[in-house]
Design a protein around this nucleic acid. Structure first.
Length: 867
RNA sequence: GGGCGGUUAGCUCAGUUGGUUAGAGCGCUUGCUCGACACGCAAGAGGUCACAAGUUCGAAUCUUGUAUCGCCCACCA
């Protein structure tokens, strides 16, 4: 039953929670419960938010995009499913909790609480944050299947992590290696290359000689590391230093241990940069370590320890000293011994740990790595090759096993990253995370999903990089390998994510899936931009510009927030958050509410014959359905939302409903059309549309709008001639309105115009909307009757439209088309073109030719009717 | 150093294979309380689409170059 007691303005608070509850109770978030014969699965795995706190507006954007896609696919009749979940986010969460504990007065949480004690604190925090996050996701209207809720650190996911690890271990892809890794002193843990951020700093570049008798000067920004130098590298063709290549010098560096400096040659040294020679510190530089691997005879000396203090290797005077002090001391020594050649300020990038924010120290140590270049047994290719294949040819050249990236420019970025990919350091020395499933007992090593039988086995104390588990998200959430969900829903259909985690996450999902499942993790991935604040800054805790989505929702409603986030953005481009935009979207929601209110107040006129207005709106709606569907099919969410917005407001409300107020015209299909619009708007603004659908009463079924069918366009309704005619009428009305102004006709007065060439309905519309009357002939002289004595001004329509201008326009158009057609005729008579052009291009050209010819004919007749 | 993106109305931004007079929201001006909506209605002002050259019957859109802003990666002696 239609509800005639609607409030004047829509109040989201009264409806949103109730509506979400209705959805949940229906069970339709779970695709197994969806009505109808649905066969095609359509799974979307929610990018699991970190359990490090609360969600921000960026998550709101993600949820909106994801939910639009899911709701659209559900309405298309697929078994649409969003699998929700959260990520334990190893380092990030531990760092956050340790930070909180320190703020609360604990000096060294790890020491004071111990492994289990600290883990307990982190677990508490994570659970707390998890429940906040899940309720926020509900608030955003996300149609997630809560029965499949997952967590990267729950039992099932942990089992799968271990299984994949074991598989990789047995395949020799996971290995223990000694090499330089990124070490965070503050975090007391390694970090992968992708967990670094860069900060530009001004530092001193020191140019010096190790000793007075050492022939080659070198430069550095980290003088204390020079106490660990074992070589100087020069370019092989550098004549200045050629004579020294191959020699070894023993240099005395004051209080430190004497250094054995080998002079080596390497092509990577740029002879034009600095002194043209490079002091090689194998222990504290990843690139120097590579030189060491090529020239192992030079040796390696670690002079800074994990604690940031100088080691014994640095010499008795330096041992135990914080590296910053050591720097001062060594620089002072160089100065006082006249070895310092120059000191200049330069700006350079410093690597920081993205979680602990301290400067990264490259250090050599034993860690676990995943080899990306080693051939996988039985597969004949490396992980790197698989990662490349998955987005180019499809795995093993199978195009059904291919990931399509939208917008496609991100494919290039991805491939570029793959090319530079190095082995991935996966072990972390923090405690919060999946413990490495390796046990040792004396000389024995065991790798397995669970602990080995027997006593005295000791498990590796390290944990896995958090991306090791999130990289398996698409199949771990489905219970790989034996769950029926996995068989049904993997590969997932579609995935969305921000471009900032393209490498961190997308690449890893592709890698793990290609390796473990031998398939892609998803068929399509949509990359969206980052949401920034109104000044273009990233939202972050440190800038203090965070906005709680719940505050926005409380003020404007979820639908308004969703619409504002999606509208007016381009795929892949960053966007900014403006409250004005939300207010605008709120106005739109309210407009829709009032349109519905108006429609429910009308009496049903279903039997009435279609009026001009009806035929026109049906034509326009058919076109709208086609366009919006095609936009959504190509993930043009913003464009689709804008088309709907414009249509609802400026065509349906401002024009169709206004026309319907001309009582003689009536309106046959107001409610039907509104329902079609509600369906199309539902993915974008699920709450208000669901509420309104209930108010106006769904025509076909009593089910929720959420599971209603996506409208289909009726091609027969499309009447482009009628559309054009309407545009002309709108222009005429607008012309009449300005004439009223020009002749200063008072609002109550009627303007009389010559109505030749217009149908009765058309005249009706114009007479009402522009308040004019139509005369059948001109019975006046224009100049004399501009202002008549009878409250009426009579004008020929020629005055309303500028006939001369119109004629010129049409003539130009005709000329343009004729020119075009002649060029096409030449093209089509060219045998080279006809025989070489791809058939579809040829076909397209011919079609265009026909289309344009028809247009030309049309214009010619229009010109005639004007004259 | 390599790559990617931006430069369109006062502001914030759309503009998918080249095609009528380049759009929206906000802001601004004027007028409206005429059967839903002032979170509204109507009218209006405002743009050499960063610049230059080229391709084309036709360029905001394609090509080349320049300027400028931003992001990512590499380097960081």
């Amino acid at each position: 039953m239609p509800d005639h007691d609607m409030e004047k303005a829509y109040d989201p608070k009264q409806h949103e929670d109730k509506t979400y509850q209705r959805w949940e109770e229906s069970g339709y978030f779970n695709p197994d419960n969806l009505p109808g014969d649905r066969v095609e699965p359509y799974a979307i795995m929610m990018p699991p938010p970190n359990v490090t706190g609360v969600l921000h507006l960026g998550h709101a954007l993600e949820n909106t995009i994801m939910d639009i896609e899911a709701r659209y696919q559900r309405m298309l009749g697929k078994r649409a499913m969003i699998v929700p979940g959260t990520d334990h986010s190893a380092v990030a969460t531990q760092a956050r909790v340790e930070d909180n504990l320190r703020k609360a007065g604990m000096e060294n949480p790890r020491q004071e609480l111990g492994r289990e004690g600290l883990l307990e604190k982190i677990r508490e925090y994570a659970e707390d944050s998890k429940s906040t996050i899940l309720s926020q996701i509900r608030k955003m209207g996300t149609s997630a299947d809560w029965s499949r809720l997952a967590y990267t650190f729950d039992e099932e996911r942990s089992r799968i992590v271990n299984e994949v690890f074991v598989k990789m271990y047995n395949d020799g892809l996971v290995y223990r290696g000694y090499r330089v890794v990124n070490w965070s002193i503050a975090g007391q843990s390694t970090a992968s290359d992708d967990e670094l951020e860069y900060s530009e700093r001004t530092t001193k570049l020191y140019t010096f000689k190790y000793s007075a008798d050492f022939p080659i000067p070198i430069a550095t920004v980290l003088p204390e590391t020079k106490l660990g130098d074992t070589a100087v590298a020069v370019h092989p063709s550098d004549e200045r230093y050629a004579e020294y290549i191959g020699q070894t010098f023993t240099v005395n560096v004051g209080a430190a241990k004497p250094l054995q400096i080998h002079v080596i040659a390497d092509d990577n040294v740029d002879p034009a940069y600095g002194t043209g020679a490079l002091g090689v510190t194998p222990a504290h530089s990843a690139s120097d370590f590579e030189l060491y691997e090529k020239n192992p005879q030079i040796g390696l000396i670690q002079i800074v320890g994990k604690d940031g203090l100088m080691t014994d290797e640095a010499g008795a005077d330096y041992a135990g000293m914080p590296y910053k002090e050591a720097r001062e001391k060594f620089v002072e020594w160089l100065r006082s011994n006249n070895l310092m050649i120059s000191e200049e300020d330069i700006t350079h990038n410093v690597s920081l740990s993205d979680r602990f924010k301290d400067e990264i120290w490259p250090m050599p140590m034993e860690q676990w790595f995943v080899s990306v270049t080693k051939e996988i047994p039985g597969r004949g290719k490396s992980l790197k090759a698989l990662m490349r294949e998955a987005v180019t040819t499809g795995l093993n050249g199978d195009t059904t096993k291919k990931v399509t990236i939208t917008p496609d420019r991100f494919e290039k970025i991805y491939l570029q990253w793959i090319d530079n990919l190095r082995d991935w350091c996966i072990s972390r020395q923090i405690w919060w995370g999946h413990r490495i499933p390796i046990w040792t007992r004396g000389e024995e090593t065991y790798c397995g999903v669970s602990a080995p039988e027997g006593d005295n086995w000791e498990q590796d104390s390290d944990t896995l990089d958090t991306w090791f588990s999130s990289g398996m998200w698409t199949f771990s959430t489905l219970g790989w390998p034996n769950n029926s969900d996995f068989a049904t829903y993997h590969p997932s259909a579609w995935m969305q994510m921000g471009h900032e985690i393209l490498r961190l996450w997308m690449a890893r999902m592709i890698m793990f899936s290609a390796y473990a499942v031998e398939d892609v993790p998803f068929h399509d991935v949509y990359i969206h931009g980052i949401l920034r604040d109104k000044d273009g800054r990233k939202f972050s805790k440190s800038s203090g510009n965070g906005i709680d989505p719940l505050d926005v929702i409380a003020e404007y409603g979820t639908d308004a927030l969703r619409m504002s986030l999606i509208k007016g953005i381009a795929p892949g481009n960053d966007s900014r958050f403006y409250e004005d935009k939300v207010a605008d979207a709120r106005n739109f929601v309210n407009k829709l509410w009032n349109i519905s209110r108006f429609v429910t107040m009308q009496e049903a006129q279903t039997t009435k014959e279609a009026s001009l207005a009806d035929r026109w709106i049906e034509s326009r709606v058919a076109q709208l359905i086609t366009e919006v569907s095609s936009d959504l099919d190509s993930y043009q969410f913003s464009q689709a939302s804008e088309k709907l917005y414009d249509f609802v407001w400026h065509e349906y409300a401002d024009w169709y409903i206004e026309m319907s107020k001309v009582s003689e015209l009536g309106s046959r299909g107001q409610k039907d059309i509104l329902e079609v619009l509600l369906r199309m708007l539902h993915p974008f603004m699920p709450f208000v549309t669901e509420v309104l659908a209930e108010k106006i009463g769904l025509s076909e079924t009593s089910e929720l709008l959420m599971v209603a069918e996506w409208p289909k366009a009726d091609p027969a309704a499309i009447d482009k001639e009628l559309d054009k005619r309407m545009v002309t009428i709108q222009e005429l009305i607008s012309g009449v309105r300005s004439l009223r102004k020009e002749y200063q006709v008072k609002p109550g007065e009627t303007l009389k115009v010559l109505g030749e060439g217009f149908s009765k309905d058309e005249q009706l519309i114009m007479s009402r909307l522009a308040r004019i009357e139509f005369a059948s002939s001109i019975d006046y002289k224009k100049s004399a009757s501009a202002v008549s004595g009878e409250d009426k001004i009579i004008l020929p329509l020629d005055d309303v439209i500028d006939v001369e201008a119109e004629r010129t326009r049409i003539q130009n158009e005709i000329a343009r088309l004729e020119k075009y057609l002649s060029s096409v005729a030449i093209k089509l008579s060219n045998e080279g073109f006809v025989s070489n052009a791809p058939p579809e291009v040829l076909e397209q050209t011919k079609q265009l030719q026909m289309q344009r010819s028809a247009e030309l004919e049309h214009l010619k007749s229009a010109l005639e009717s004007l004259t």
